[in-house]
Nucleic acid binder design. Structure first.
Length: 454
RNA sequence: GUGGAUGUAGCUCAGUUGGUUAGAGCACUGGAUUGUGGUUCCAGGGGUCGUGGGUUCAAGUCCCAUCUUCCACCCCA
């Protein structure tokens, strides 16, 4: 079929069954956000490219979806550039808007723009789709939803505590076993300083981040390729090999990087957060992982990543502290910290582990069958009574075979069916069929309401 | 952006070294059952074999291009 319609690569439709499950995820997350005092905001799907460009590194810029200017945009473009066919240069002339890449940068823009209307520390949550022109693959889409919580305008590490507790609570409610990994950019920069390659911090961390994926040898090889000296790699080995509990790791790290200025601060921050945490009982394990890096280069302090313990899918939640994100938009000195829940990956995890609650199947509780014009007004009054009682119910709109209507109820997983024919109208005793047991009996409306209500 | 695989009915897939009219299961529609779904039985509809070109007497099958989806890399939720 040639003209079968389709949707763009990496995007998806969500049918009713999927939406019910997705809403379960969103409402669970939202419940926790609200409980901790965070407030909702939304920002537009598109932002000015000047807001987005240069915030996600060179790779990130390539992954931005750009929107063509309206009108006759080509006539305003530079002829020489058009002739040159240089897409990159032309794009700045014919496009000035792009789809947002994440929710953090638009949030920073929002904070700067509305600084006078906000009271700080400002705690917000935001659950909206983001777009990346990535090549799609497993657990990776071009349009996906993020659920962000951030607090800006507070340096306190109590905010980190807040976030960790929220991550723990969300995944406890969703019944996903997770490991919350924590590290600190200052520790990473301390490591780079300690091995004598402070300017190579990004290279070192990016290579190190792959440790559990590719193994130590490949990490060494990559470090070498990235121009790290053998001497420095040799010094890095004890850091990479470092295993064991949080206390032990911190002690060893203290020895290795404790005398670098960044390293010392980083370790102190991690200790402080762990200290706060010790007063709480968490379901998930919080693990200090000195190899955790995270790509986004605006992070400056704590960084987090949550991995599902029972599914291989990459991280399902991540974030960290950024000290100067609003600075790029002209408001320096405002520190923020936040995490982002990947709703789509959480969906995949719940599907794989079969953890969606079963009652998420159907919303309609009662279907009233349509017997014909004679019965319609009677049926409608019953419908109204049920709905006034808050029972979600529907009346089949067409007079078709009972068999077809029953099948509709069955497929929509509607637990009760009411039949109102001539006989029922005369007696006022309506036939109520329980679709799960197959049992049916006659009741007056009031009894039906009692019966059908949970 | 790089490399590899894939595409046949709404869905999941068969289809021989190229050879007449391309099949199955599920789903759908009708009937057995004119007021009873989920089980069973019978019948039926539905395909330009992703698209465009090429080779050949002959292409679902071989070649090229293109798109889709998937997998890995880069990177990331």
């Amino acid at each position: 079929m040639a003209q079968k319609p389709s949707i763009p690569k990496g995007t998806r439709d969500f049918g009713p069954a999927e939406m019910i499950k997705r809403n379960y995820i969103f409402s669970t997350i939202q419940k926790v956000f609200i409980k901790y005092g965070y407030q909702p905001i939304e920002t537009p799907a598109m932002e000015n490219l000047s807001t987005l460009m240069g915030k996600y590194g060179e790779e990130g810029d390539k992954l931005l979806f750009k929107i063509l200017n309206s009108g006759d945009f080509l006539s305003k473009a530079d002829d020489a550039l058009l002739e040159e066919k240089n897409s990159l240069k032309i794009s700045t002339q014919i496009s000035e808007k792009g789809l947002r890449y994440d929710l953090t940068v638009p949030f920073a823009r929002f904070v700067v723009q509305h600084r006078n209307e906000l009271s700080f520390p400002f705690k917000r949550y935001q659950m909206q789709p983001v777009w990346r022109a990535d090549r799609p693959q497993k657990g990776r889409y071009r349009e996906f939803f993020q659920c962000d919580v951030d607090v800006v305008g507070s340096d306190s590490l109590l905010n980190e505590l807040d976030l960790i507790r929220m991550m723990d609570e969300v995944f406890r409610l969703l019944k996903i076993n997770v490991v919350i990994k924590m590290n600190n950019r200052k520790i990473l920069s301390g490591i780079a300083q300690a091995i004598g390659a402070p300017e190579k911090m990004m290279d070192i961390t990016m290579a190190m981040d792959k440790l559990d994926k590719v193994g130590a040898e490949k990490v060494y090889a990559e470090l070498h390729d990235r121009g790290i000296s053998d001497d420095a790699i040799e010094k890095l080995k004890p850091v990479l090999k470092l295993q064991g509990g949080n206390c032990m790791r911190l002690e060893v790290l203290e020895d290795l990087i404790g005398d670098t200025p960044d390293g010392a601060t980083g370790l102190k921050e991690v200790r402080e957060i762990l200290d706060y945490l010790s007063a709480f009982t968490l379901e998930s394990e919080v693990e200090v992982d000195q190899t955790l890096a995270r790509g986004l280069n605006y992070y400056t302090g704590a960084i987090f990543e949550v991995k599902a313990a029972d599914v291989k899918i990459g991280s399902i939640c991540g974030g960290g502290r950024y000290d100067n994100l609003t600075g790029i938009f002209g408001l320096p000195g405002v520190s923020g910290v936040g995490v982002s829940f990947g709703a789509d990956r959480i969906y995949d995890v719940l599907t794989e582990l079969n953890l969606f609650p079963s009652e998420a199947a159907s919303a309609t509780r009662v279907l009233i069958l349509n017997f014909g014009d004679k019965e319609t007004s009677y049926a409608l009054s019953v419908l109204q009574q049920l709905q006034q009682e808050g029972i979600s119910s529907e009346f089949y709109p067409d007079t078709v075979k009972i068999k077809k209507q029953m099948k509709y109820a069955d497929q929509k997983n509607i637990p009760f069916v009411i039949m109102i024919g001539e006989e029922e109208m005369e007696s006022g005793a309506l036939t109520l069929k329980n679709m799960t047991t197959g049992v049916q009996d006659k009741y007056v409306v009031e009894e039906i309401i009692k019966h059908v209500k949970k």
